[in-house]
Design a binder for these strands. Sequence first.
DNA 1: GGTGTTTTCGAAAACGTTTTCGATTATAAT
DNA 2: ATTATAATCGAAAACGTTTTCGAAAACACC
Lengths: 342, 342
Amino acid sequence: MNDTKLIDIASALGISVTTVSKALKGYTDISKTTRAKVIEMADKMNYMPNSVAVNLRTNETKTIGVIIPATVHHFFSSVLNGILEEAEKRGYLVIILQSSEKYELEKKQVALLLQKRVDGILMSLSNETDDFFHINEAIRKNTPVVLFDKIAKRVDCSKVVINDMKAAYDAVTYLIEKGFKKIAHFRGSYVPQNSIDRFLGYKKALEDHNIKYDPSLVYVCDHNTDFEDGYENAEKLMTDHNDVDAVFAVTDLVAIGIIKYFNDKKIKTPEQVAVFGFSNWFMSTVISPKLTTIDQPGYDIGYRAASILIDEIAQIKEHIPVVHQIVELPTHIIERESTQRL
Amino acid sequence: MNDTKLIDIASALGISVTTVSKALKGYTDISKTTRAKVIEMADKMNYMPNSVAVNLRTNETKTIGVIIPATVHHFFSSVLNGILEEAEKRGYLVIILQSSEKYELEKKQVALLLQKRVDGILMSLSNETDDFFHINEAIRKNTPVVLFDKIAKRVDCSKVVINDMKAAYDAVTYLIEKGFKKIAHFRGSYVPQNSIDRFLGYKKALEDHNIKYDPSLVYVCDHNTDFEDGYENAEKLMTDHNDVDAVFAVTDLVAIGIIKYFNDKKIKTPEQVAVFGFSNWFMSTVISPKLTTIDQPGYDIGYRAASILIDEIAQIKEHIPVVHQIVELPTHIIERESTQRL
DNA sequence: GGTGTTTTCGAAAACGTTTTCGATTATAAT
DNA sequence: ATTATAATCGAAAACGTTTTCGAAAACACC
């Protein structure tokens, strides 16, 4: 309660708050001696500026907002770590919100952040989002937005992503070159572009290597919370096509479901069927056999997105025109046991 | 930039900002008709109050700060989800900071949050923290603090925890009652109280069941990022004591390291050596055999801590005396394959 | 038509800063 | 001693709200 403010220092020293403020901020029109006195007294009285007042006056909050669509787990926790670290380094605080894949909530949260006068917004879109008015509204109000992972091409702002299609293409190409012939795909739901792109990458890789695309080899795994989906579809797959020799899964989670099924049924991985995941979640080294997968650089995505956002905030402040960047982070194949032909 | 403020509505309607403000906030001394006009105009002009100005005037920010010691993964991501959900429900925003187990950083971050005028602080202490001045300072300034997981008994505030000692005691008792005789313990580092308590629970369970405590059966695993620690110590354990029949690990992560070593060396789990983990992280069902463990309710801890904090914020505001609560959330044994005697 | 009551509004202060601009004092130049 | 210049300070406005308190208007009552 007894917070010391500028006026307390001022009256303790018998000078004006103006002088105190200037002394503390290093203005050159304050003499060395009074500046020293002010600093000493501020220190003694344990002065800490009231950010709210500063924010109101300076019209910046040194705070960025982050909206993620899903629960903070796996991929998004890596992203978050990247964001937090970069923000800390650059002197920004971060407010986290989760839209839980709901468009209405996402819209409300953007409005909230705007009210809060955050200096910028980082977001990954919910699956329901197909209208971008709320995002454009933020941009129009001079609050920069950078989209990551689940983005909208049509929104004019910076974005940081991976190339899901290319990554999937590479994965399937790898399998083909390893000699696998009948490759199934466990795809994600029909709605986020990422899962569509991974599917398209799968399909294109087949076609480019003269393997006929067979829709019956594609299974959809559309709930993201556990690996049951992969497990159950693996069972279907083996009754439908007991001669498959590889499967490319949309996430490590479903890949793990598949491997669990194979392990339970004594189907040898990779000898009988190889499994390829996506994301390189921590558990992909826990499962046996260890999972070959695509390294989705969550941490890098986070820190990069934060870095660009903070750059843009600075540019807007300096009134220098900002040019939006689309950065596409590289992905790599992490080769492990689940695809190793002996 | 062209944000509409109270004065814009006022001048558009030819009335004062006072009236506009009151109309919007439902004051009864504004006539129905002007209130209707104000609301309509506010709506039309897409008015959104400037939170910073509101905060300055009302002296509350509807924001809470969260400081966690480690990276957002595993346990803390569950906690975070609990916090975020409760905060959303109660109309609070949340600022996340990570202290990275550094006392100095933690101290700085508390100061930052205080400057930001958050309404309350949620924190789990860093391992280095053994001085609580910064926390008491926050409390003294009427900013309630609730500690969770890694707490300090000596700080006078609410806390939400599990009983690590009892949980460990239960785990080891379970092993003893299952007939295991020579039970090793892979403990955590010497510093956080949690790992000490788990160790003490282990020791007490042995003693209460007339099994002599043997220090040579205790191995320390003190880096928390991967399971190598468990793996390597498992190797040591088997050369030192090739007749152990169970091991109680301080976390699921080290338990998984142990199981991986056993799997590699064809040491049967649980037939030759049973393994018991702690926390029930997601991957404990991924490993084979599935891991028996203690359910550490991260989500509940988070939402409960947030709930108590927000209650206390309200109490302080209403000037009703707040009584601090120490809530101890129950833990359960999750029995899976890694301890099942046939 | 005067008095009392209720309804409706607005001026102004306040929250704690930052920053502009003018005023005062000290110093230098003549 | 006078004037010009530089150094040092402070008054005041501003950021956008909320809230107190008094004023004006409307209405009621006799």
